[in-house]
Every structure is written in structure tokens, then in C-alpha cells.
Design a protein around this nucleic acid. Sequence first.
DNA 1: TTGCTAAATCTTGTATACAAGACAGGATAC
DNA 2: GTATCCTGTCTTGTATACAAGATTTAGCAA
Lengths: 235, 235
Amino acid sequence: MKHNTLQSPSRQKPRRENLADRIYEQLKALIFNFQLLPGDYFSETEIAERFAASRTPVREALHRLHREQYVDVHFRSGWQVRPFDFKVFEDLYDLRILLETSAIERLCNLTELPACIAELSAIWCVPDVDRVTDMTLSDMDRSFHSRLVQAAGNEEMARIHRDISERIHIIRRLDFTKDYRIDATYQEHAAILDAIQHRRSDHAKYLLRAHIIVSRDEVRKITLHMLQEARERHM
Amino acid sequence: MKHNTLQSPSRQKPRRENLADRIYEQLKALIFNFQLLPGDYFSETEIAERFAASRTPVREALHRLHREQYVDVHFRSGWQVRPFDFKVFEDLYDLRILLETSAIERLCNLTELPACIAELSAIWCVPDVDRVTDMTLSDMDRSFHSRLVQAAGNEEMARIHRDISERIHIIRRLDFTKDYRIDATYQEHAAILDAIQHRRSDHAKYLLRAHIIVSRDEVRKITLHMLQEARERHM
DNA sequence: TTGCTAAATCTTGTATACAAGACAGGATAC
DNA sequence: GTATCCTGTCTTGTATACAAGATTTAGCAA
């Protein structure tokens, strides 16, 4: 193979929108919205017809979703939305706790905190009346935790944290339908930020762990509830 | 879209070998062996001709390598082996330390250790003469650390640990060319296993952290050395 | 009704054709 | 000499055709 037959492109192009990406996003949305249910079988042709595209970009999107554990491919027998696996979510939550407490540890060892922390405080450490809700609380919560990890400066940890947060998000959203969690979320985030700003590492980690475990337990209940409902539907 | 137009395939098929997977592996090998150098540009057609295949499976392999951070795609301007980024490897090492110390912590809290730990001891806690070397030390080392994380029981952590270990492996292999590291590796692994078996969590974590940091520093030196050589070649 | 066989249908995997744009190099204007 | 524009070549992105096999279903026998 000849090397360097291509010249170096002058600039990094902004990866203009392509069909495969669009289909990827929309397909993921279908899965997130339970329009494609865990366990459902479908074919590339079906998806291609639905999006008025050819199989090529659909395949690219599906293989990407496969790598990200959302769907499974069966050789010459179609695709399947990966069924919920209870343990996977438990494991992902534990991994989140690990990454986020590590981030807190690192942040608390800094003499000067990144500007990002002050920005988070401006969002979360506010009286009730100043609370903005242009995002859903679910998205705001995800953003809070992601930015916390990002602020610690390890890009790889941040990238993985984003990925697993998104995977959890499928089921996590369902939690925030309950109003009483809104106040609690604000208070808990504010307390965590406060502890970080006072460099109380262990306390911050303790608060965060408790905060995430509440989520995990809620999700556990939701999962059980969904399984129950699914069973009833099929009886 | 009609749901469930497909019936459930009776069995999980063993995903028979396909061309895209083969090309993916071979392409990764090319990158690992520095036959494709970081920074090199190439096109899908070149790769396809080299492997006597069409662009379709090549594209699938390349997109997979892209998601795994090995290559970059430039819109209508070819592909590029992602240049080495020093900080990425540093970050990956820190993530490894985090995952592995977490695994040790968990293992040390078990009343009964998984059988896997005894198996590892059988490999690493042996006198010099009993050392087997059917694998390269580099592969054995990777296997040791992966199995340690696997033993802790969190599948997601184990999966991510495997992925990052593989990414580090590109450069990590170069370290084990030095003979004096062989003895050290055996001793350090044995010491870590011993500490785990005696439930000395903090000590095991301390040993492991030191063990990985040595690797990281070696890699750092290698990277600097390679950069130096590359500079000299281009002068 | 039940069980078996074979063809018809449908699936993914792969090769190829086409489209739209990026890039290099040369011609041209000045 | 220098800058600009044009054109040909090469690139990836997308659509489509074909291959090989898995699944289903119709048909038939007992």
C-alpha cells in the first residue's frame, strides 16, 4: 500500500450532516421513546423505508447502535432492540459513582477550582424562584453530573461518563416525572457544590454517592414496575 | 413501521466470521505494528485494494476504528490514522488505575474470593523456573489486569477496562522489550495477589498504583523517544 | 391432527454504480 | 512574479444489485 498518497487536508472539516448520523439519532430516539421496545425485532429494510433512505446509511447507524449496546444483530435474521438487563443498569450506576467521586476527589485537591464549578453554582445554588426550567430537570441533572466530571480534566473519563449517562438516560428520564424529586435534586446538587467549594472531599463524595443511589433505587423500582406491566400485557 | 414482523430467531447465532470483522482486525494490526503510522493519510479504495475486497466492509471496519478513536475521517478527503496524543495516554492510565483499584477494593470486601484469583496466583506466584511464556509478557500482563477487574463482577467496568487496555497496548508493548521488567512484573503481580488474598485492600491498591505508574512513566519515555526519532527522520 | 420436506420469501453481507464536493495543478489575467 | 479561476481527478456518502443462507410456510403423507 502506498502511504501518503493523499495530501494533508488543510483544515478539519466540520463533518457536515450526513444521513447516517441523522438516522442514528432518530433511531436512538425511537428506542428512547419506547416506539421500538426492548426485544422488538426489525429489519434494515423496514428502517430504510421508514426513513426513505437506502440500507447503506441505515446499516451504518445500526452498527453504531450495536457497538453502543442498544441493538443486536442476528446473522441474516434481522435486528433486535436489546432487551433490558437489570444488572447492566446497576453496573452503570456503580461506574458513574466511581467516575464522579473520583472527579470530586480531584477537584477538591485543586487550589483553584475551574470556572465551570462557579457556573454550576449559579445554576443550582439559587432560591426556588430563580430556578429556570428551559431544559427538563432530567437533562439538567445529566448536564450537572457530566460537567462535574468534565471539570476534573480527564477527557477519557468524561467521554465514558457521557456515554454511560446516555445509556442510563433511557430509563432515568422516567424518574423525573415525580415532582417531589425536583426540590431534592436542587438541594442535593447545591450541597455537593458547596462541599466541593469548601474542599470537603469526603463529605462531597458521601453526598454524591447518596444522591446517585437514590436515582439507582428509583430506576430499580421503575424497572420492576415496567416488567410487571409488560407481564400483565402479555397475560 | 410494522413491529414484530420478524419472528424471534430460535438461537443466538455465533456471528460467523465476516469480511468486515477480518478487515477491522487486520487494519488494527497495521496500526499497532506501525505499518500505518499515526498521521498517515489513506483512502478507502487503497485499503479495499490491499485486502482484495470492496469498499463496503472496509468502510464498516474504518467507522468502527473511528468510534474507537484510532482513525479520523475527513469529509471527501480521505482517512487519517489519529496522531498520538500524549495526554490521552496519561488519561487512560489514570482511568485504569481508578478501575483497577476499585476492583481491588471490591474484591477485598468479599469473604470468599472468586476462583479466578487462585488461577491468577497459579500463574504469577511461582518460582522463576516455573514461569511459562507461551504468551508474550505484554499479553500476560494485560490479561492479569483484565481478569482482576473482571473478577470484581462489574461487567461494564470490565468492558471499558478491556477497551482502554487495548488502546494503551499500541504503545505499551514497546515497554516489555526490556528484560529487567520481566522479573519486576512477576514480583509486583505476585505481591498484589498476595495482598488481596490477605484482604489488605489499601496495601494492594498502593502496590497496583505504583505498578501502573511505572508502566505509565515507561510509556511516557517511549513516547518522547518516538517523537524525537520522528523529528530526526523529518529533518 | 401431526410431522416432515421443499420451495418461496426474507434476511444480512458484499460488490458496484452514481452523486456531490474537495483538492491539485495548470492556464490565464495583470 | 503573483493571484485567480477553471478543470480534471480523487474522495467519501448514498443507492442499488447480487450472493448466500436462515426462516417460514405451503404441501403432502401418515
